[in-house]
Design a binder for these strands. Structure first.
Lengths: 298, 298
DNA sequence: GCCACGGACGAAAGCTATTTTCAGCTCCGG
DNA sequence: CCGGAGCTGAAAATAGCTTTCGTCCGTGGC
């Protein structure tokens, strides 16, 4: 639990953005993530040569990672290397294999999810989050779209928002979703949750909501997903390491839930005066269902 | 050449060498020692301007300080600044307060969930898990009970099991759940998910299944929960720190999902021959719904 | 006091590294 | 198999770094 945040979140960013990168950019990003210290000593030309790409690609990659250019990236790399050297070296999480003993599976899954959380937290854009929270807190009505695994995340968010007295609906059925979306208007909020960023049945309703003037929020793993075109605020999730036994679609859940939690807590803070009583009221309402004595005859 | 001085080291060096420096070089050295981080962001020209000197002087100073040129000095400054900054540990108070800035909320939630995962992994009984996995892998039919927040976890498990070709149902409605549970018999598996360990609407179906001879599994946060009386295998979850804005019922979700993931991966391993094709089949089936019009890596 | 000398200093030339442009190419979708 | 979108690297353009070199100032000798 020591290496909670990897220095500067660069490795995190690399992992998050990797899917939306082209092949040669991935090579560069990988090299950089694998050996920041070494790369910080290379010139563009040298790094391009090492990765078997061109200077142009290196610069493009640097830009994609959020730096102003290679020079900037190089500085960051040096800083990162220094910081890393100062702190403890991060633990490695290998893939989960078919023949891993269960004890290892538990450890690996836990570590993987932990890193996933750290990554997501490290690179979450707080300004976007802030904006999203503001919109949710003030919303007249909130629709949350999610399908498949993401539908659970959508439901989770909705359950939470309902608990603090907001009007929220989780929508999964493509038809109902669309017919619902077109009811939205300014002052309403639509949230789309999709790991791939392209899921049609989720993008379309968001688009409809967007077109009707509602505030739209996208929780996605792809910065370049179609869904981002129609989102006022984009919250990026990191999907951690995927493997055959644990596809990205499944691994993404953890990050999505973290983002959803952040949204929820943010909104609860903003609306504390109404949220707090609502929360305890819902707690009270369920209390007798969870108490051992009442429900346990004999 | 690779000097390991810290901030004090550089300042010291500047002081030591100051006498042997010319006036304008001193100005440069001073600026650098006073604000390494800031200077690392400047180009030669900018630093020259800031110190009222020329580029040539800046380079000379860098050389005098033992670097190969300004470029090298700049890298070193960035590293230095980073190392210095790294001295400040995260040191986050676990509780989330109403007036925490959003950035802190993100950090705290992430840390909290990470710890939650670590705790759960640490104390999960692998033998119980092994047994549960065995039962699931061999099950004729699987029922998963969960209500409220736990219903999402139940659905998550079911979604995953379905993907590898098992017959699983998530049941939330108290009546349907019960009527379903009494259909179970030996060779079937029932899973109950409840944080409190006492949730009546979840305990009862598990009990029914238990009485009918099905293998029963409980995923719960309470080792002494009522639910454990009717569970052949108990998988304990840890709920992390709770707070007013984040009740245990919500915090427990993370651990529950980890346990569910472990179950799933375990089962997938055991049934690899059928699970792997089923997984890729379901992936294929969805592929076209997630692909944009672009180069799709891997 | 004046001149010769040495070193400091910066302007600008020279050069290297970085960034941008652009044309070819690949690969997707039709 | 065709057209087009978008990836790619070669090369041009630019920015940044380094070096050169002449000026200037202070110093010390005459």
């Amino acid at each position: 639990m020591k290496e909670t945040f990897n220095a500067g979140g660069l490795a995190a960013k690399v992992r998050t953005m990797a899917p939306s990168m082209t092949r040669s950019m991935q090579r560069v990003a990988e090299a950089v993530a694998a050996d920041p210290a070494g790369c910080s000593r290379l010139t563009v030309t040298a790094l391009a040569a090492r990765t078997g790409t061109s200077e142009a690609t290196v610069v493009r990659t640097a830009r994609l990672l959020g730096y102003s250019g290679y020079r900037d990236l190089r500085l960051a790399l040096a800083a990162l290397a220094a910081r890393e050297e100062a702190g403890a070296p991060p633990a490695v999480t290998p893939d989960i294999a078919v023949d891993d003993p269960l004890a290892d599976v538990v450890t690996k899954l836990a570590l993987d999810e932990q890193r996933c959380l750290a990554d997501t937290a490290a690179q979450l854009d707080v300004a976007q989050l802030e904006a999203a929270v503001g919109a949710l807190a003030a919303a007249r009505r909130i629709d949350v779209y999610g399908i498949g695994a993401s539908s659970l995340v959508a439901q989770d968010l909705v359950q939470k928002l309902l608990r603090i007295g907001l009007v929220a609906h989780a929508l999964g059925d493509p038809h109902l979703t669309l017919t619902n979306a077109v009811q939205l208007r300014q002052g309403d909020v639509a949230v789309a949750i999709t790991h791939s960023g392209h899921t049609h049945d989720v993008v379309e309703p968001l688009r409809a909501a967007f077109d009707r003037g509602a505030t739209t929020i996208a929780v996605t793993g792809r910065a370049d997903g179609t869904v981002t075109h129609y989102a006022d605020h984009v919250l990026l999730t990191s999907s951690g390491r995927e493997s055959e036994l644990r596809p990205a679609a499944m691994a993404s859940r953890t990050s999505q839930l973290l983002v959803v939690d952040c949204l929820f807590v943010g909104v609860a803070q903003r609306t504390y005066d109404t949220a707090a009583p609502a929360l305890s009221a819902s707690y009270e309402a369920l209390a007798h269902r969870h108490s051992p004595r009442r429900n346990h005859p004999q």
